[in-house]
């Protein structure tokens, strides 16, 4: 009981701080200096129509590299913590319904296609590597819901992930020699503003980020899925839905 009162007092203090902040908050009328610079020079320097993509990939590219590294570390720690012990018995699963199997057979390719579209067009329209990667991982969720015992090849995921990470850093280093600095997108010519092949290296970098984030999120999902699936636990009647 005393704990709850203490928690309540703590929250009231926090609420007081928030109230003061809210009262003194003045809604800005103009962009601050950094944002105004990005808005004015982003189009000519980077050549990307989507300014958020320009900032994520080029201006703050180092942040993105760190972020992808954090995701990689998370995936490694997860595989360490959720290591399977072999002794558990077979897991029996109800066969999923006809509706779900048909829907996933029809929809999953299109979901993957949408994910690829979103990260290829990241510099033109809303979207990009993170969104596309998350959409691809959601497609994997649908696959796993249809067939909970499905094995996802972790070797393939690891290969795609490390290859895209390696190429990403390599292109970043190429920016030091061929353009202004690490992860500078002006290695390639800027192209026509607003077309698919524009903004120099940015679309390629964003595609690599998309592949890396997609495989990392998929790896994370399969880790949690494997926790429930003991080794060799596949039942014959579930094999039918596997020709996706």
């Amino acid at each position: 009981m005393i704990k709850k009162i203490f928690a309540f007092l703590l929250l009231i203090a926090l609420a007081g701080v928030f109230l003061v902040v809210l009262q003194n908050y003045e809604t800005p009328e103009e962009l601050n200096l950094t944002a105004a610079y990005y808005a004015e020079h982003g189009a000519e320097e980077v050549g990307a129509a989507n300014l958020v993509s320009a900032i994520v990939v080029t201006y703050r590219g180092l942040d993105t590299l760190g972020e992808v590294t954090i995701l990689f570390l998370t995936a490694s720690i997860l595989s360490f913590f959720l290591k399977q012990r072999e002794e558990r018995g077979k897991r029996s699963v109800r066969a999923s319904s006809e509706l779900l199997r048909t829907a996933s057979a029809v929809l999953v390719p299109f979901i993957f296609l949408l994910g690829a579209y979103v990260f290829i067009n990241g510099h033109l329209s809303p979207g990009g590597g993170f969104q596309g990667g998350a959409i691809i991982a959601s497609g994997l969720v649908l696959l796993l819901l249809t067939d909970p015992l499905r094995k996802v090849s972790s070797r393939l995921l690891a290969r795609v992930e490390s290859a895209s990470g390696f190429i990403y850093v390599g292109l970043g280093i190429a920016g030091i020699f061929l353009a202004g600095g690490f992860l500078d997108s002006r290695v390639l010519p800027a192209g026509t503003f607003g077309t698919l092949l524009s903004a120099g290296l940015l679309p390629i970098l964003y595609i690599l980020i998309g592949l890396k984030v997609g495989t990392e999120l998929s790896g994370l999902l399969t880790r949690f899925q494997e926790v429930q699936v003991p080794d060799g636990g596949d039942s014959p009647d579930l094999k039918k839905g596997e020709n996706v």
Binding site: N50, P126, G128, Q131, S138, V141, L217, L221, F224, Q225
Partner: peptide, 23 residues
């Protein structure tokens, strides 16, 4: 913020919910 909206819809309500259910 359409970019953020896409990310939140796919990750916040899709992937993290499914991870909670797995656990």
């Amino acid at each position: 913020a359409p970019d953020v909206a896409m990310t939140e819809a796919a990750i916040g309500s899709g992937l993290s919910t499914i991870i909670f259910f797995y656990v």
